[in-house]
Design a binder for these strands. Structure first.
Length: 334
DNA sequence: ACATGAATAT
DNA sequence: TATATTCATG
């Protein structure tokens, strides 16, 4: 309320590092995050495990910071090299096959898809591979899901313990993500299988190639950027969002401030508001090409409908009709 | 051979 | 801490 405040801001702004300072390296046309995430490393390490430039990317809110496009370029280059796999010089700088995928960030949207999938499968049948298929998120790997599932199970476990014993809730700090999606009741009862096989999206043929992931992500990102606000401020129910970024700092998360929102319902502040939040790009598999259905080991009837073509309407960008209604699962619980 | 899940690593 | 990777099993 005082001029001090404005001064403060002005000074703060001035003291921000210049772009040069942030990106000293020439090849850092792309954000260091992504560059590294994609294992685009300088001819140096034989270790495919190099990480982060440890920069304090005080990543400004500006949504324009979307580094997807550039990342895409690089990644394609990368992948090109990959497929080419010049079998020569194995030692030095062969990103080749041992390409490291960027860390997957489980956004609330993504997690929701996850939960939905698990819910529909029933906890019993919910195994990584199946979950992955149902989620139909391009670029999502079985490992991704497995890892998340492991953690989710622990979460559920804790929840059970708490629900019966009654006591303090889950740590908002820890369970922020999980809290963003309501846990279906039956999850806590290791009993009956919902089997409520409603119509599942049933995976669209896939082609789980990382390349696609990139492309799709980039495309989606572009669309998202062009059309940041889809639905009124409330729930950002876009599509599953696969967001990749660097581990060191998600880009936000101020330790000092309390929280971002209400933990239980959905705890995200203003996503596109000040860009403070992760842009989260979505990329749901939509590769009408190959057919992959080698699974006969599951008895879940839900997976049998080869009809589910829920392709998102990312195109709505042109008309401000804001139609962007994505046909995710029939689940209306979000 | 392949998927899972727990343990472990980053 | 969150996610990835490894590893013993089935």
């Amino acid at each position: 309320m005082r001029e001090d405040d404005s001064d403060w801001f002005a000074r703060w702004e001035e003291e921000l590092p210049s772009p040069e300072e942030l990106m000293p390296i020439s090849q850092s046309l792309i954000s260091p995050d992504l560059a590294l995430a994609f294992d685009i490393r300088s001819p140096n390490h034989g270790n495919g495990n190099s990480n982060q430039p440890h920069h304090h990317q005080t990543t400004p809110p500006t949504p324009s910071q979307l580094q997807l496009p550039s990342s895409q370029a690089n990644s394609s280059a990368e992948f090109a090299a990959d497929s080419a796999d010049l079998g020569s010089g194995a030692a030095g700088d062969e990103p080749a096959r041992t390409l490291k995928r960027p860390r997957l960030v489980w956004t609330p949207q993504l997690h929701k898809r996850f939960v939905d999938a698990v819910a529909h499968l029933g906890i019993k049948n919910a195994v990584p591979k199946t979950i992955m298929q149902l989620m139909s998120v391009d670029g999502l790997t079985r490992e991704n899901v497995a890892s998340h599932l492991q953690k989710y199970r622990l979460y559920l476990k804790r929840m059970q313990g708490l629900s019966s014993g009654g006591g303090a809730g889950s740590d908002p700090a820890t369970d922020r993500l999980f809290a963003s999606s309501p846990v279906p009741a039956h999850f806590l009862h290791p009993n009956r299988v919902p089997s409520s096989d409603h119509f599942m999206p049933s995976f669209v043929p896939i082609a789980t190639l990382q390349q696609q992931q990139q492309m799709a992500a980039a495309a989606a990102a572009a669309a998202a950027a062009a059309n940041p606000h889809l639905q009124p401020p409330q729930f950002h129910r876009q599509i599953a969002a696969a967001h990749f970024s660097s581990p060191t700092n998600g880009g936000f998360s101020s330790p000092t401030n309390g929280q971002f929102g209400s933990p239980t319902s959905n705890g995200f502040g203003s996503p596109t508001a000040n860009g403070k939040f992760d842009p989260s790009f979505l990329a749901v598999r939509q590769t009408p090409q190959q057919q992959q259905q080698p699974i006969h080991r599951m008895s879940t009837p839900s997976l049998h409908s080869p009809v589910g073509n829920y392709v998102e309407d990312l195109e709505s960008a042109n008309a401000n009709g804001g139609r962007t209604v994505l046909t995710l699962f029939p689940t209306r619980d979000d």
